[in-house]
Amino acid sequence: MSIAHRPSDETLAAFAAGQLDEGLAVVVACHVEANRESRQRLRELDAVQGALLDAIEPVAMAAGPRDASGIAQGAPDSAAPVSEAGMPQVLRPYGFGPWRPIGIRIAMRRVEVPGAGARVFMLRAGPGIALPHHKHTGVEWTTILAGAYEHEYGRYAAGDFDEADAEHEHTPRVDPVEGCTCIVAMTGNVLLQGWLGRMLQPLVRF
């Protein structure tokens, strides 16, 4: 088994602190749900916030406690819908567009993340195909949901997180047996190349 690909400390810390763009945060959350090591790290980073709270200089409240007596105790109703089979639980709060073919054995569906600066979508590719060769001006963060792909930085399987920035230029090749389904958040503009890239372009820039 290969070593799992995980986010940098800094990315996880920004996620823990609630400082990431919501689109990027959703992709990180899909990874955290699937990776025990990152979940453990996240608990530690939450504890950093507890330590900051303990050490902070208090600022006097303008008003005393609101009357809580009318407020029911207990868990709030779980209003979040049930997730589709095989989908990460953390995607439950979000809506999805339909799967749309964007090439031979490649399909894409939009993930609706209101207020996100990053564009979020899922990509499903058949065994053995090469994903479009591309460069971008922002970041592109990916969590593999099923199957695997491989590029010059290694093999990325279910649960792995692939953190690429503008300096990276890669051509992932999808696993020849399992295919690959992943969720991607992109910022900036994508510069796709080749015929597939030209087909993908208008869809990425929704």
């Binding site: 609630g18 919501e22 959703v26 959350a29 955290v32 749900e33 025990r36 953390v90 709060p93 209101p114």
Partner: peptide, 22 residues
């Protein structure tokens, strides 16, 4: 802070918190 954009991020944190017991 993100009320006007109907952010759902806090639900994501809550789901992560309830999921996957250590």
């Amino acid at each position: 802070a993100r009320r006007e954009t109907r952010s759902r991020l806090s639900q994501v944190y809550e789901i992560l918190d309830e999921e996957a017991p250590e």
